[in-house]
């Protein structure tokens, strides 16, 4: 049972992101700001550091591909960006101390990198036609605020859950 808990949690977050986008009162502040939920990637980052890096990258591929198919219909962007974000995160974490505050701060930095990477790719394929300053005002900063509050709430439960997962892997 414990073995399936992590993929189930990730799948729930995947569905929840779509639901969140739909139910979030988007006309706050006249709808000037866009809050993008990035809960899935946060869970993946925590999984890679507290669980196992291999599983983090693998689920990054699977859920990146699903995200592309279901939510954007352009296959490739998230398929590439999710594992890359996990890989960069893991490499930064090797250099610094892994207490929960540092992990939270570095993961919010990685969310910012992911957002900017997605923006750059969309700019390249002419889906986005916005300069970086308005992008950061409309989407990047509100998104970081939303996701940081999510991390504040869920950092500790995630840590415990993924450490249990790592234990069960080691016991096998």
């Amino acid at each position: 049972m414990k073995r399936y808990l992590v993929p189930l949690l990730l799948a729930f977050l995947f569905v929840f992101e779509g639901l969140f986008a739909q139910l979030w009162p988007a006309d706050w502040f006249n709808g000037d700001y866009i809050f993008v939920p990035r809960f899935l990637i946060i869970a993946l980052l925590f999984l890679s550091i507290y669980g196992s890096m291999k599983h983090g990258i693998m689920y990054g591929f699977i859920f990146g591909l699903m995200f592309d198919m279901v939510y954007t219909e352009i296959i490739g962007i998230y398929l590439f960006m999710f594992p890359l974000a996990v890989y960069i995160f893991w490499n930064i974490m090797r250099l610094v101390d892994t207490n929960i505050i540092v992990v939270s701060v570095v993961s919010i930095i990685c969310v910012a990198l992911l957002e900017s990477g997605v923006y750059l790719m969309n700019l390249l394929i002419h889906i986005a036609n916005m300069d970086f300053s308005s992008f950061s005002k409309i989407r990047l900063i509100p998104t970081l605020i939303l996701n940081f509050s999510f991390i504040l709430l869920f950092a500790y439960p995630f840590k415990r859950q993924f450490e249990k997962f790592a234990d069960s892997l080691r016991n096998d």
Binding site: V15, E17, G18, L19, F20, A21, Q22, I34, V36, P37, V70, Y71, T72, E73, I74, V118, Y119, N122, I127, A128, M130, I138, R139
Partner: peptide, 16 residues
């Protein structure tokens, strides 16, 4: 009825 919305808003304004 709407069952979901793309969270990647601004680039992909889509509903399912």
């Amino acid at each position: 009825t709407i069952i979901s919305r793309s969270p990647d808003r601004l680039w992909h304004e889509m509903i399912i």
